[in-house]
Design a protein around this nucleic acid. Structure first.
Lengths: 128, 128, 128, 128
DNA sequence: GTGGTCTAGACCACC
DNA sequence: GTGGTCTAGACCACG
């Protein structure tokens, strides 16, 4: 369910956050919306509870989940919407990267092609 | 000529590398192709000489420049081509970002629009 | 009669205590002064009996109620007076908060205004 | 300069945050606006560096200070304004407390008196 | 059982 | 020197 790269330069807790956000989007969390407990998941992933705790704290700070004291953590109902709003602001990142690649001589056609591939990806697989 | 953001989370030496690469691409380095000395430039930018040294070392490692001992650093003649090759591999990065944004519900049209903006921005200047 | 916020950061047992004290002040407990049994009320509120037990223990410790073994819990006759005395000591808390807000630049007029609003709120109901 | 109560129920890192905010308001940070380093201050207060780090991270998240990589942390120029804005929203807290005390029979006159004392505090001492 | 906090000590990257 | 991250292991409050 999760893949953590302990050697990566991006901190583990950020990797965790990213993975959780993906899970929320894809609905890969149990139907009751409960997130795995700190103890359990930290064992499963063999990471330190503190690290996971930190990831959870940040996810909660973003309003994507909430804590029921003594009971567990649950995904917020409007989590998907919030993620959408956040993604919108990340478009600027996309623009910056495109600008840089353009500067380095990558033709627009190439990037357009990549975009096509990404967005038609699953479509092709199914319809073929 | 250079703009360094000391507050940025991306290390200064990486910022330097990126800026040098841009200068190489745009030909903004003196006609003789000589890079400014560590001592001089570090003073100009008021950064630590070690930091600049590190950037130069990395640029050299990438084969974009070479050192003439006791004389200075000069841009390699095939530097532009090498940068082109490197940029190509960075397209994967672009794809990854596009994939993620797609996953989060950003429609293809939006990204295409961004692409158009980026590429038609200065394109006009050329076609005029 | 009771509203428990299970998501609140203030423990449930403290919420219970506060609500009981309010009920005692407003006289909203049955004329006989008997408090609901642990079993019944914990079911009604769908909270853990232990939690309710803890709240009752604390209320009893404060001398606001007493237990008749095998019979039930009853509100102490001097409960209201005791609550008054306790509230007096909480004025210090009020002073501390006011001091802090002053330190942060909130003008006295603003706090006075708040005070007016709070106290004149239901005051009207009485004078009518 | 700082007083930490390790036995308090409010976490150390929150105590730290509160104290820093007060220092910022009163201008008790060195003229250059640099905050003490994690290592140094954690030794001085004999607390764990991690705890202090956490406090600093939160302060930074609130936009009250910023980090110069490899150099240190500095107070943001608009820190005082931000603190003012935050305080404004805390007025609600004040109202809630006043409401509760009113409910418990504290007369308005008493709270008004407290308010007078708090705000005229230093004035009296001087003019008397 | 749950989450929250803290300590001790280590390692890394950057300047 | 600076901040940032992580681990290991402990303790506490709450339900």
């Amino acid at each position: 369910m999760f893949t953590i790269d302990k050697l990566s330069r991006t901190p583990i807790y950020e990797q965790l956050i990213a993975q959780f956000e993906r899970c929320i989007l894809s609905g890969d969390i149990g139907a009751d919306g409960q997130l795995p407990s700190v103890r359990l998941l930290s064992q499963t992933l063999s990471i330190n509870p503190n690290t996971l705790q930190r990831a959870y704290a940040e996810i909660e700070r973003r309003g994507l989940c909430y804590t029921v004291p003594g009971n567990g953590r649950y995904i917020a109902k409007d989590a998907v919407e919030k993620l959408g709003a956040m993604a919108n602001s990340r478009t600027e990142e996309f623009a910056a990267l495109a600008r840089e690649l353009k500067e380095r001589g990558i033709p627009k056609a190439k990037l357009s092609g990549v975009l096509d591939m990404v967005y038609d990806d699953e479509g092709k697989v199914i319809t073929e």
